[in-house]
Every structure is written in structure tokens, then in C-alpha cells.
């Protein structure tokens, strides 16, 4: 295949045709290019409608708002890459966020466990992910049902921990304003999201775990037939997704400076479309973290831009949904045959 392509390329060059390198680059990166173009077009339109859209303050604001969904979307990308879905994100985030705040200096008092607050919160989230993974692979319950149940388990854990006392606030001002503080010209929460995405991309590209994940998503039976440990890979993916949801839960509480059991409400349905817009196939086996990052930025830009463009709240949801469908259709057009497969 490769030699045929090279021969064709040489032939085109010899006959004066445009080099296939550009065409091949475009073909390989069609999703990334189309999302980048979409972001650019949206930015132009919104800047015309309201010049404040392009202000430094607003660009910082967009990145700040993209930070949390980006972290969630990285975990969701892993799960979607194996052709599954994780609906437990919001419940797991709530459980981790509540655990974190109650183990940190907060308005309810109690002991500040410092570093261990992070470890326990993320550990709890990873454990919930582990149970989802085991139930999914061993009991053969579809992932959307298992994780829907785990959503409520997480929410239940958060509600029990919350009890009937007042809402706990973080009492450390440095911590409660950390998310919006700047480093390297970006808000900390976006920077953290970017780091998580880069690590995710490296994992996918350079580790055997990443290659097995893509193989499982491409064709589970062939992967199993080739001796790959499919179930172990799937459980690991859910553990990673759980741990990432835990990080997101902590970031959400730091961002608000407080926590309640519904702290994560609405986040899943920003992250999942962002992953799909980013070119990750719902059928599994294909996708990239770069696409996910761009998908999150696209959706955040859209939400922010509609507000700045004075779109009435009565129409905003519908307009946002319409643009979302359009973006998904455009970016997923090239994979429409694959999307017919459902797992």
C-alpha cells in the first residue's frame, strides 16, 4: 500500500500535479482542520457582532471555561475510543469533589489532610471507575447502563458526605482562586486540562496500552483473537476515566470555592459532544486528543460567543443545539459509514 502511494506521488510530481503530501496531510487531519476552521469562522463572526469577544479578557475567560470540560473530555475520549460510553462522570466528580473539600481546610472545620485529600478523592473516583469497568466486562452489562448506575452511586456518596450541614466552602483563598490564576499566559485550570490531554495523547501514541485501546476499539474480536488482553484494557480505561473525573471534580470545587452534590451538573453534555466533534468515532478505534481539545474550545467559544452576541436566552439553547448538530455532521461526515456500527 505504502509503495503504491509513493509511486503515485512520484508520478504526480513528474507530471506536474500538486504534490500529494498536502492532500495526504489534509486527508489525515481533516477533522482537526475543519474544527480549527470552524473555531476561526465563529471567532470572526462573534468579533464582528461584539468587538469585546476578541478582547484579551474574554479569550482568557474562554480558556478558563474550557478547562473543566477539557479534563472531562480527555477521560471520555479514552472510553469512546474503545467503543463504549461513560455516563458516570458527573456522579464521580461530585463524590471526588465532596471528598476533597471535606478533607481540605473548609468552612465546616475538620482536619486539613493536605496532599492526601487529593489522593483519596482521585483514588475514590478511580475505584468507582474500576467497578464500572469490572461490571462492564465481567457481568457483560452495556457500558451506558453500568455507568448510568455508577453516576447515581457517585451522587449518593456525595449526598451522604454532604449530610444536612451547610455548604462547605474552601477557606484557603489561594486555593479557591487557583483555577483562574495565570501561568504561561493561560488560566491554571486550562493549563491543567492541556497537561492531562498531552499525557493522554502520549499514552495513546507511545504505550502498548494506547495501541491495545485503539485495537480494541477497531475490532474487539480480532484484538482478542490476537491474544490481546481486551478485558484488562477495558477495565484500565474505565479506571483512567474515573481518575480523570476525580481530577475534574476537584477542579470544579476549586473553581466554585465550594461544593454541593450537584457541582458537576451539565458538564457531561458539554464534554461528550466535544469528543465527537473532535473526530473521535463513537464506534471506537479512531480519534485524537488534539481533536478533543479543539472540540472543547469550539463548544466553549460557541456558548461564550452567543452570550456576547446578545442572543436571547430563549433562543440560545436552540441556536447552540443547531450549530452543534451542524458541527457534528460536518466533522463526522467522512466517517458516516463507520458510525452505523453500534456497540
Amino acid at each position: 500500500m505504502a509503495s503504491t502511494a509513493n509511486a503515485k506521488s512520484m508520478n504526480r510530481a513528474a507530471t506536474g500535479q500538486p504534490t500529494s503530501v498536502v492532500a495526504s496531510f489534509i486527508k489525515r487531519n481533516v477533522e482537526v482542520i475543519s474544527i480549527s476552521a470552524s473555531i476561526f469562522v465563529l471567532a470572526i463572526i462573534f468579533s464582528i457582532l461584539n468587538p469585546r469577544f476578541a478582547s484579551v479578557e474574554n479569550l482568557e475567560n474562554i480558556l478558563n471555561q474550557a478547562g473543566l470540560p477539557l479534563i472531562i473530555a480527555v477521560g471520555a475520549t479514552f472510553v469512546i475510543l474503545i467503543g463504549s460510553i461513560d455516563l458516570s462522570v458527573e456522579g464521580v466528580m461530585s463524590a471526588a469533589g465532596m471528598t476533597f473539600v471535606l478533607m481540605t481546610a473548609n468552612s465546616r472545620g475538620g482536619t486539613d489532610y493536605g496532599f492526601w485529600a487529593y489522593v483519596v478523592a482521585i483514588g475514590l473516583a478511580a475505584a468507582l471507575g474500576f467497578f464500572s469497568g469490572v461490571l462492564f466486562t465481567k457481568v457483560k452489562v452495556p457500558s451506558f447502563i453500568v455507568t448510568l448506575g455508577m453516576w447515581y452511586v457517585g451522587l449518593g456518596v456525595a449526598t451522604v458526605l454532604f449530610g444536612t450541614d451547610t455548604m462547605p466552602f474552601l477557606t484557603n483563598d489561594d486555593l479557591s482562586t487557583w483555577a483562574s490564576q495565570q501561568n504561561l499566559g493561560m488560566p491554571n485550570n486550562f493549563l491543567l486540562g492541556l497537561i492531562v490531554a498531552i499525557l493522554g495523547a502520549l499514552f495513546l501514541r507511545f504505550t502498548s496500552f494506547g495501541r491495545v485501546t485503539l485495537a480494541v476499539g477497531n475490532n474487539e474480536e480480532i484484538a482478542r483473537g490476537n491474544g490481546l488482553k481486551v478485558n484488562r484494557n477495558k477495565v484500565t480505561v474505565f479506571v483512567i476515566a474515573g481518575a480523570i473525573s476525580g481530577i475534574a471534580g476537584i477542579v470544579a470545587t476549586i473553581q466554585l470555592g465550594a461544593v454541593n452534590p450537584t457541582i458537576a451538573a451539565g458538564n457531561l453534555f458539554i464534554a461528550l459532544p466535544a469528543v465527537v466533534i473532535g473526530g473521535t468515532s463513537l464506534a471506537g478505534g479512531k480519534g485524537s486528543m488534539l481533536g478533543t481539545v479543539l472540540g472543547v474550545i469550539l463548544l466553549t467559544t460557541l456558548t461564550n460567543g452567543l452570550t456576547l452576541a446578545d442572543v436571547s436566552p430563549n433562543f440560545k439553547t436552540a441556536v447552540s443545539g443547531g450549530i452543534l448538530i451542524l458541527a457534528i455532521v460536518i466533522t463526522a461526515w467522512s466517517q458516516r459509514d463507520r458510525l452505523r456500527i453500534s456497540k
Binding site: S55, E57, N61, L256, I263, T307
Partner: peptide
Amino acid sequence: WDPQLAYKNSKDLIAKHG
């Protein structure tokens, strides 16, 4: 009625109206 959504909307409105 959602604190997190109120936070996000306020951020947008700060950017818009300063």
C-alpha cells in the same frame, strides 16, 4: 438555580460588560 452555571454566566457577563 445552579451555582456553577451562575459562575460561568457571570464570567461571560464580566467579559461582555466589564
